[in-house]
Structure formats: structure tokens, C-alpha cells
């Protein structure tokens, strides 16, 4: 087949093959460039409340992602202005640690009821998500303000206490 091909058509030139290699490499480098530049532009630290507060000033003004346990009593919502404020308590970021302490539900419960855990005040301006309640895990994307308050642009919630199955994104940015 190969020889037949070469006899019938023009002989396959070396330059032709080089052309394909150059084309392929160009596309691959374009894809690599897209990935690298998009990562640089959009990478966010994923921190626990404790880590965020430890880094303090360093993090002010940067986009970061923070995870914490929602403290039900602190939820305040003004539907007129859609201003939502609440506090989250520190939960460990490491899955292993969470596992050792008896699973996410137990960790969230302990965090909310432990007054010694570092706490973070959060402000979010949008519709109050259905899943926002006591002992839910909140994953927030936003910026830490000079006042030590976290201004969230995006708020994701999950409630492992009751359900084990899929619970996707509750609110988008």
C-alpha cells in the first residue's frame, strides 16, 4: 500500500513531513500557552480560615478561595439589598485530618460549636442560596478586605450531614 501510494501520487517529500511536524508543534505549543497563561491568570490559593488569617495583610486584595463551617446563628440577610452576612468557623483543609476526626459532618459540627476556632466574617451580595444553613460547608471565592471581612463573589455550599449523594453548584458568581 505504501509503495503503491508513492508510485501513484507524487513521491512523499521529506519537506512534507517536516511541514506536519511544524504544524503539530505549533498547535501543541499554542495549547500549552493557553494552559499556562490561563493558570497564571486564574490560580487562587485554597485556604482554611486559619491560614487566611495567618497570612493576613499579604492576602488583602488577592482572589482566594476559603473553606469554612457556616455558623447558623450569625446568618443575616437583607433581601431588599440582597446583602448576606454570616460567619464561618475554621475547618481543617486536609482530607486525611477530616477523616481521622470522624468525617466531614462531625468536623463541621465540632467547628461550629467550638468557640476557640478562628472565625471569619463573610459578606456576599446576591440571592441567599438554599443550602446556606448551620453546619454547612461553605467554599467562598473572593477577597479579604482591610477590615478583616471576606468579600465573597462566589459561594458554594454542601451539607454532608444529611445526604451523601451528588449536590452540585448551588450558586454561581
Amino acid at each position: 500500500m505504501e509503495q503503491f501510494e508513492q508510485k501513484k501520487g507524487k513521491p512523499i517529500k521529506q519537506s512534507n513531513r517536516i511541514k506536519f511536524w511544524i504544524g503539530g508543534l505549533l498547535i501543541i505549543s499554542a495549547i500549552v500557552y493557553l494552559i499556562v497563561s490561563s493558570t497564571q491568570a486564574n490560580a487562587q490559593y485554597f485556604l482554611t480560615v486559619e491560614e487566611l488569617q495567618a497570612k493576613g495583610d499579604q492576602m488583602i486584595g488577592h482572589d482566594v478561595r476559603v473553606s469554612g463551617a457556616v455558623i447558623g446563628d450569625t446568618i443575616q440577610y437583607d433581601p431588599q439589598s440582597l446583602k448576606l452576612t454570616f460567619e464561618v468557623a475554621n475547618v481543617p483543609g486536609d482530607n486525611k485530618v477530616i477523616e481521622e476526626q470522624g468525617g466531614l459532618a462531625a468536623v463541621l459540627h465540632a467547628a461550629v460549636n467550638d468557640a476557640n476556632q478562628p472565625r471569619l466574617k463573610v459578606v456576599y451580595n446576591d440571592v441567599k442560596p438554599d443550602l446556606l444553613k448551620n453546619e454547612a460547608q461553605a467554599i467562598m471565592t473572593g477577597k479579604l478586605g482591610n477590615d478583616g471581612v471576606f468579600y465573597a463573589q462566589e459561594l458554594l455550599l454542601k451539607c454532608p450531614t444529611k445526604y451523601e449523594e451528588a449536590l452540585p453548584q448551588q450558586s454561581g458568581g
Partner: peptide, 18 residues
Amino acid sequence: GQKVTVGPPFYQRATAPL
């Protein structure tokens, strides 16, 4: 040793040209 994540903007930006 530090978890760094990328969100939807990363995917949108990187996949849109593709």
C-alpha cells in the same frame, strides 16, 4: 504544600479558542 485551585474562568479562557 499549598492548595491552589483554578475556577471556571480558567476553563473558559483556555478552552474557548479550542
